[in-house]
Computed example of a mutant assay.
Amino acid sequence: MNINLKDWGLTQEIYDQYEERADHQKIGRVVEEHKNLYKVITEIGYIIGKVAGKLQYETDGNGDYPSVGDYVLLEHHSGDKALITEILPRKSKFSRKIAGSQFEEQVVVTNMDELWICMALNKDFNLKRLDRYTTLAWDSGATPVIILTKADLCEDIDEALEEINQTIFGIDMIVVSSVEDIGLDLVMNRMEYGKTIALLGSSGVGKSTLINKILGNEEQETTDIMADDRGKHTTTYRKLMLLDQGGIIVDTPGMKSVGLLNNDKQLDDTFKDIVEIGNLCRFSDCSHNSEPGCAIKAAIANGELSSERYNNYVKLKKEAAYMEKKLNKAALRRESKERGRHFKSHKKVKY
């Protein structure tokens, strides 16, 4: 089998990085991730990759392990199995705080050109959640696009768009309905040869159904809308798929939580309307509580800014600051453990 990895997004820049680093290794792209094993597409077909011991030793956390979308160096082991010896530099990545109480980064997908943030126009419509996604999306290095699904279930699309336009800036939006084929032509127009697009969103927003429309088959398992008008989660793992018409698309499991990392600058990008209003305050260090000449309080009072949006901004800023503190502590703990291992391995030998 002879695979052209350009079909899978390989560019000359990435290939040059490969040639600089490779000795006898091959290059491949991670298309699926299953616990400690990775399905990798190479020029000879699919290979099952496992992280080499040296790479495991050099990692500082979950974010340094391979993820779907990564270009990796492979050292052939036997048959269709190989060792992943290195991850090539990522041009983009979408990360969140790992689910649960751990304070670590989870890399969801890498090396994508566009991030499609999917949100349904039914009861799942949630501007606060959209703020979280867009904040992380701005930090990814990819171009965010908002895909508003299930338009056939929305009573007033114009009102929903107006709500979003008041809070989200600089991001293209596409309204779609996989049932009535609304907006699918706009979606298809964004597909290009070698371009990688990742779909993100909560469980049941219709990502898999939309992907099936794009693929023209029932590749992704889907389920009907449940009685409460919410979709049901179907995708259980991330998967990178090649499109017949050119381009690559990545489906991801629905996310119950979208924990922020230390995205302070990206929060300011998402809430730039609030930042711009805050710059008009009389005092540069205004806390927007009781100071005279506070532009934020004035904007809320005259209806220019909703108190709900401002409170959400404050909440996310506190969460980002808390996460930064916790992540820094976790990094210091890892460094301390690494120093301990280094010290033990260099103890003086007694004669």
Rank of each mutant, 00 (worst) to 15 (best):
M1H: 13
W8C: 03
W8Q: 04
T11F: 04
E13Y: 09
Q17W: 08
Y18L: 12
A22F: 08
G28Y: 00
V31T: 05
V31G: 02
N36R: 14
Y38R: 03
Y38F: 08
E43A: 12
Y46I: 13
Y46G: 09
K50H: 13
V51T: 02
G53H: 04
K54M: 05
L55K: 04
E58W: 08
E58P: 04
G61K: 01
D64K: 07
P66S: 05
S67I: 06
S67V: 10
V68A: 03
Y71I: 07
E75P: 06
H76W: 13
H77I: 12
G79C: 08
D80M: 13
D80C: 11
A82P: 00
E86A: 13
P89V: 10
P89A: 12
R90N: 08
S92L: 06
K93C: 12
S95L: 09
R96S: 02
A99T: 10
A99W: 14
G100Q: 00
V109D: 04
L115D: 10
L115M: 13
L115Y: 09
I117E: 04
A120P: 00
A120Y: 00
K123Q: 11
D124L: 01
N126F: 04
R132P: 01
T135A: 07
L136C: 14
I147N: 05
L148S: 00
C154A: 01
C154S: 00
C154G: 00
E155F: 03
E155R: 06
E159Y: 11
A160W: 00
L161H: 01
I164H: 06
N165K: 14
D172H: 15
M173R: 12
V175D: 03
S177L: 00
I182M: 05
G183H: 01
L184C: 01
V187N: 02
M188P: 10
N189F: 07
N189R: 11
R190K: 06
M191Y: 07
M191H: 07
Y193F: 15
G194Y: 02
L200I: 07
L200Y: 03
S203M: 00
K207G: 03
K213L: 00
I214M: 06
I214K: 04
L215F: 07
Q220P: 10
T222W: 08
T222F: 10
D224R: 15
M226A: 15
M226L: 14
D229T: 02
D229W: 04
R230L: 12
G231T: 04
H233V: 11
R238C: 14
R238M: 12
M241T: 09
G246I: 02
I248T: 02
P253K: 04
P253G: 03
G254I: 02
G254C: 01
V258P: 03
L261F: 05
L261Q: 04
D264N: 14
Q266H: 14
L267I: 09
D269Y: 15
K272T: 12
D273M: 08
V275N: 06
N279H: 15
N279P: 11
N289V: 11
S290P: 09
S290C: 08
C294Q: 02
A295F: 01
A299I: 01
I300V: 07
I300W: 04
A301H: 09
G303Y: 02
E308S: 10
E308F: 11
K315Y: 10
K317H: 05
Y322I: 14
L327H: 06
K329V: 11
A330Q: 14
L332P: 12
R333C: 09
K337L: 14
K337M: 13
K337R: 14
E338I: 15
F343L: 15
F343W: 13
F343N: 15
H346N: 02
K347A: 10
Y351H: 08
